[in-house]
Amino acid sequence: MSARPDRESLPYRDCVGVAVFNQEGNVFIGRRKPDEGTEDRTEVEAPWQMPQGGIDKGEDPLRAALRELYEETNISAVSLLAEAPEWIYYDLPDEALGIALKGKYRGQRQRWFAFAFTGGDSEIDVLSPGGGKHPPEFDAWRWERLTRTPGLIVPFKKQAYEKVVEAFADIPQRFTHV
C-alpha cells in the first residue's frame, strides 16, 4: 500500500462551475453516473451536482464554462447573468487524496458562473451530451432550488456549494419577480 501524498505539497486544479437557471429561477442539477461496475448505488454514492470541469491550459474561464456545460448537458442556449466574485475552493477528503483527480491535486479551485437558460428542456441531453461526442457524466437531471444544492452534493463539496449559493443568492428572485 502506497503512502498518501502530503496534502500541502499538492496544488489545486483550476476548474469552472456552472449554475444554469430556468425561467422559474431553479437551477440545473445532474445526478453523477456510477463508476463502472457499481450499477447498484445509493443517492449518497451518486449525488447531484451542477456542471463543472477543468480549465484547459490557456483557456479563458468563461469559455471553459460554456464548453463544460455543453459537454456535460448539451446546453448551449444560455446568457451570462453573473460571475462569482472570487475563486471557490474545496479539498478532497483524506481517503481520496492521491486517487481522485488523477492523484495530482489536493482539490479544486473553481470559478463559478451563473447563466439564464434560454432554450427549451428538449435541448438538455445528459445521456448523449456534447452532440453525442462526449461520454455522459450524469444519468439523470432535474431543476432544483439553488438553496437546496448544498444538501445534495457530496459532503466534502458542501462548503463550496454554500459559497455558490451565497454568490448567486439574488438570481432566483430575478425570475420570480418579472
Rank of each mutant, 00 (worst) to 15 (best):
P129I: 06
S2K: 13
R111M: 10
V178I: 11
A96H: 11
R4N: 06
I29H: 03
K104H: 13
A77L: 10
P150W: 06
P93D: 09
T73P: 04
P11M: 08
F115H: 03
L97S: 10
V18L: 00
V178S: 14
E71M: 08
R142I: 03
V27D: 03
R145E: 15
V20G: 01
I55M: 02
P129H: 07
P34V: 07
A19F: 00
G130T: 07
W112Y: 15
G131F: 10
V165T: 04
G30P: 05
V18T: 07
Y70P: 00
D91C: 06
A167Y: 02
G120H: 09
F175C: 10
S76K: 15
R7V: 10
T149Q: 03
P129N: 06
S79L: 05
E24L: 12
E8S: 15
E166A: 14
P11N: 06
L97V: 12
I55W: 04
A140G: 07
N22Q: 05
F138E: 03
A167P: 12
E36Q: 13
M1P: 10
Y161G: 00
D40T: 13
G17E: 01
T176G: 01
L92G: 05
G17D: 00
E137F: 00
V78S: 04
A140I: 05
R109V: 05
R174Y: 04
D91I: 02
L81Q: 09
M1D: 08
